[in-house]
């Protein structure tokens, strides 16, 4: 398997899984406008995933399509970070998960827009605009929830406490990241951390929320070791293609 293919897959998986999670929430948001927002954000992530998986399929050239990669890979073959597979729980969890991830992807896509790989750079430049917009939305909600009522503050703080254990994994580069950074195709995620800290801290201060960082950190997603949550998500997402192989609209 080519290294570029592997790299594209992990970038795609983050977006595909988050998109699926957000889609589960459609029709359940606290207000209609947020339902639309969640649907739109999910669609942006799905679009990015689709373009990256199509390109990954093309790079590999073994006949598998983007749909095959999305619907016929098992849990162990998915290499998304653990953060994006975490369950929706409540609105505060959805916003906190999105906020932590948007702050990461904003920097990631900006950096990848300068990739030596023309196709990846094109997808990244487009996604960078969308990520900045998503971050504005999720930051706005972090502030409203954190600086809102006692209930919304407590829920936002609780969501941060639950999700913070998945933060370090976003910036823990491995051999593949290092190799991609060295060739100029990718970026070393460690380099994105200080900017992320700055982005997150300024919003958390305005939101009267605290970081939740002294706890245990989880990782493994990049190697296909996932939390219990992913299997359930894939079960639902892949059911149709698994039960009726080759089914088309």
């Amino acid at each position: 398997m080519s290294r570029l293919h592997e790299y594209l897959i992990r970038l795609a998986d983050d977006n595909l899984i988050l998109s699926q999670r957000l889609s589960e929430y459609i029709s359940r948001a606290p207000e209609l406008e947020e339902d639309l927002a969640v649907a739109n954000i999910a669609l942006d992530h799905l679009g990015v995933a689709m373009h990256l998986l199509s390109y990954a399929a093309e790079v590999q050239g073994d006949g598998r399509t983007a749909d095959d990669l999305a619907f016929l890979r098992s849990e162990r073959e998915y290499t998304n970070v653990l953060l994006v597979e975490q369950p929706n729980v409540d609105f505060a969890h959805i916003i906190a998960r999105q906020f932590l991830f948007d702050a990461y992807q904003t920097g990631l896509w900006q950096a990848l827009a300068a990739s030596n790989d023309e196709t990846l750079a094109g997808v990244a430049a487009k996604a960078a605009k969308e990520a900045a917009y998503h971050l504005r939305h999720s930051s706005g909600w972090m502030i409203r929830l954190g600086d809102g009522t006692a209930e919304s503050h407590d829920r936002a703080q609780a969501a941060l406490a639950t999700l913070w254990r998945f933060v370090d994994e976003l910036f823990a580069g491995d051999d593949l990241d290092a190799e991609m950074a060295a060739t100029g195709y990718g970026v070393a995620p460690e380099e994105l951390r200080s900017e992320w800290d700055h982005r997150v801290d300024s919003t958390l201060t305005a939101a009267t929320l605290q970081r939740s960082e002294d706890g245990y950190q989880r990782s493994g997603g990049r190697n296909g070791f996932h939390t219990e949550q992913l299997g359930h998500l894939l079960g639902e997402m892949q059911w149709m293609q698994r039960s009726y192989p080759g089914l088309q609209w």
Binding site: E33, L36, A37, A39, N40, I41, L43, D44, Y133
Partner: peptide, 13 residues
Amino acid sequence: LVSEFGATACKAL
């Protein structure tokens, strides 16, 4: 501004 996201991705409400 009522919502950053409208009926389609390209619109705000």
